[in-house]
Design a protein around this nucleic acid. Sequence first.
RNA 1: GCCCUUGUAGCUCAAAGGAUAAAGCAGUGGCUUCCGGAGCCAAAGAUUGGAGGUUCGAUUCCUCCCAAGGGCACCA
Length: 569
Amino acid sequence: MIREEIEKDLTAVLKKLRISSSGLILEHPSESNHGDYATNIALQAGTSNSKLKTHNAFDLATKIVNTWRSLGLPAYLAKIEIVQPGFINLWLNNDYLITQLEEVIKKGDGFGWSNIGKGKTVVIDYSSPNIAKPFGIGHFRSTIIGTSLANIYRFLCWKVVGINHLGDWGTQFGKIIYQIKNNSLDKLLTVKDLEKLYIDFHKKAEKKPELKEKAREWFKKLEEGDSEAKKIWQMCTEISLKEFNRVYDRLGVKFEQTIGESFYQDKTKEVIETAQKKKLAVKSEGALVIKLPELKGPPALLVKSDGATTYFTRDLAAIVYRQKKWKPVLSIYEVGSEQSFHFQQLFAVAAKLGYGQRENFIHISHGLIHLPGGGKLSTRSGQTVYLEEVLDEAIKRAKKLGCKDEKTAEMIGIGAVKYFDLKNHPATNITFDWNKMFVLEGNSGPYLQYAYARTQSVLRKSNHSKFNFQNSIVKNDHLKLKPEEVSLLRALYKFPEVVMEAGENFSPNLICNFIFDLAQKYNLFYNRLPILKADTEEIVNFRLALTTAVGQVLENGLSLLGISAPEKM
RNA sequence: GCCCUUGUAGCUCAAAGGAUAAAGCAGUGGCUUCCGGAGCCAAAGAUUGGAGGUUCGAUUCCUCCCAAGGGCACCA
């Protein structure tokens, strides 16, 4: 990667001047007329290094550049510039950029891949909905962001274990079992039936709080292996999974493992014993807890006063299980921000029990989806938006715009909804709004898909036998590159860096930003310059190469986001 | 009350401590020779919630204040 090469070369120069290169940072200037890369090393060294304090940063930058010149500037540089108050700006030359264009075409769907994660395993816990209720919009973010993070980490050569940690255990099932037992229901067919029971339970419990006791009792029974409870639970699970898998199929979402909380019912004992042995667990108000005064909040609840476990215990057991099975160096939990205290507790306890270091765990806490009035989504109160309804609506709107067929409409509609989520930083809250959710123009999924389809359309219309870029190295002085072409070249090579950054920061939105910018640049290029009818065959070839490369990077980027790239739309 | 997160253009939002704060939507004015107008261009729109501080440099880091959202043990 060119960034590494520049860093290496600059480090050598700094070494010669005995300047520490520890603060060496290369950035892409926000203004393209400030070059492709810039460094502020002179500004940093000029002030932090006492020996050099007499220098002003601009002089130091000059010195650095002069030394570099005397050592011989590398071939990839076109221009180097020193700017007040002491920036060093670097321009890559067009011939080098063209080699990167070839690189995109050569590597194809592998362009952007890197091996920085080689040999490392990451466990990503995402989606993880509570079953026995329909798949709501509330779990959409975790599902989509988690999928994208998994794609990104896979692309960075990590071994990725995506886990759907289903909420299929807990007092909620006590509630449903109670309802079924006391309502003499003949048959339950759908998840919506189950949801109704859940809502009804909460309505009744408002007047009769003692019902909650009943629910806990039933869950306790379930955990103790009561056959009647187990039978009902199993039925709930089957009904739910059938529906959930349909939604996952539509979304194109996959997991390495789908292991719900129920899986850990016989594994919590070990965790509890460890906590007791380490003298971390103490009795409090009849329950077994772990006190965490440093977190300034209630203690972590290990065992309830009735003897049943909590999701905290099961999450701990899951950590133990995952450590044993996969030995991840990183565990990512893509879960909503309302659970951030839970994860603070979980990670703190995991570290205390010796299940890993604090830095091996991270909670990617995404913002919540609110209803327009500011209301919170809540199954209990019946405030739900069903994901499938949202998807259906998205597809309907895509069709209205004139999609060729059902399959394309689905790509566009679902792509729009996914992109709407992913383009923002995970932390932002989202207000659910039917009109905003289905953006089909501007910074949107369909915009990118359209740009991609456009590149493919151009390529289809070209006579491929003429397009022989790989064997004819094109020199830029020969082509007299237009600004629109250069701007594409200056963008394409950055893609691998963007993928890395997105992974490091757990931010798929960085990929969105990048491919949107690329698509804009391509559209400008497309509108201003003829491709197939360019003056010379050489230029036609070059522009087709650009088109191929842009299409490829758009496709790779969209694929990391989990969005399909249609050939036609 | 305590803890966490977030305050950037009318709206939705972007920016590993950098240069003139980036876009999209809405609104304004334009684009029929041609490869897909779900597109393109132009102008307009922001004392980055407020006050201090650290720094050559702060939307970014620190302190305080204000506002919004979330959480505060037997739900997950």
